[in-house]
């Protein structure tokens, strides 16, 4: 094969691959929208769940609660960890490389293992599924994501800002909280949004920690989130129509979350150029 035919073949191959990627998304999105909209009914958003209306409203409320608790736990820890890694740690210290190694390990662990761990640890101690355990399990899951995004945001803050602050006599803590962190907020925010996306989509880690009961749950009650709602609908096997509409709601949520994080990230890029 001479150079020019080879080039043509390669050219066509990369274009086909890009086309396939777009086609896959188009296929999934179109399929869910086309089948989801006709199955969308108003009583699926009723405040309480019955076997007649199969409402997803309790699941939506639980998703919001879970995301909120998980973030309350993971955000301060993750941000503080990133601050240590960027602002305090000496380069090449053993402790830092160990933290990085474990963070990488955490981000690679499949969600079902987190679910099993949460189940072993909390449910056995306290007997029974609760939303709080689910949220704590998820907070461990999103920790690496928050650490990574915060780290990147902190690294993007120019050193001149820190030096200026030190020059004016501020201490390290004051510099971090008054100068560095405010500059890094957009980056941290985009990490938070991505974490919310993961929480919304998570099911395997929640089934055996938060349980699958369709009610608006308090902290110590069992309750299903939206993805778990979908899992429950599919395993009962009677509610395929409702599963279509739930899939549509999930898809719309993911699109909103992705757009938000994209625009926040863009704002971040604009700030430092």
């Amino acid at each position: 094969m001479n150079q020019y035919t080879l080039s043509k073949v390669l050219n066509v191959l990369v274009k086909i691959s890009a086309f396939i990627t777009m086609a896959i998304l188009g296929w999934i999105v179109a399929y869910i929208i086309i089948n989801g909209i006709p199955n969308m009914t108003l009583d699926q958003f009723a405040w309480t769940y019955t076997t007649d209306n199969v409402s997803m409203m309790p699941a939506i409320v639980n998703t919001v609660t879970t995301a909120f608790i998980a973030l309350i736990i993971a955000l301060p820890l993750g941000v503080a960890c990133a601050i240590y890694l960027v602002e305090y740690a000496k380069k090449g210290s053993k402790f830092v490389s160990f933290v990085r190694l474990t963070t990488e390990t955490l981000s690679g662990i499949p969600s079902i293992i987190f679910g099993l761990f949460g189940n072993l640890m909390f449910v056995i101690i306290f007997k029974g599924y609760t939303l709080l355990f689910g949220a704590i399990t998820l907070s461990i899951m999103i920790l690496p994501l928050i650490i990574r995004t915060t780290e990147e945001a902190l690294l993007a803050v120019p050193d001149a800002y820190r030096e200026g602050s030190f020059g004016l006599g501020a201490g390290k803590t004051r510099t971090i909280f008054k100068i560095v962190l405010p500059c890094a907020v957009p980056g941290i925010l985009s990490g938070v949004i991505l974490s919310i996306g993961r929480i919304v989509g998570e099911s395997a880690a929640l089934i055996y920690t938060a349980g699958t009961i369709p009610q608006i749950a308090g902290l110590m009650d069992s309750g299903r989130t939206l993805s778990v709602h979908m899992y429950a609908l599919l395993s009962e096997g009677l509610y395929i129509d409702q599963a279509y509409s739930t899939a549509l709601v999930l898809l719309v949520l993911v699109i909103i979350i992705n757009t938000l994080s994209g625009s926040v990230a863009k704002k971040l890029g604009g700030n430092h150029e």
Partner: peptide, 28 residues
């Protein structure tokens, strides 16, 4: 111009929950 479309497409593929993928696989 194409890159501006393809990038969000890939991000969305990454963002779709696995349960939705599973459902799509099952019914489609």
């Amino acid at each position: 111009r194409v890159g501006k479309i393809l990038k969000p497409v890939i991000d969305l593929l990454a963002g779709i929950p696995s349960i939705v993928y599973g459902f799509f696989g099952l019914v489609c």
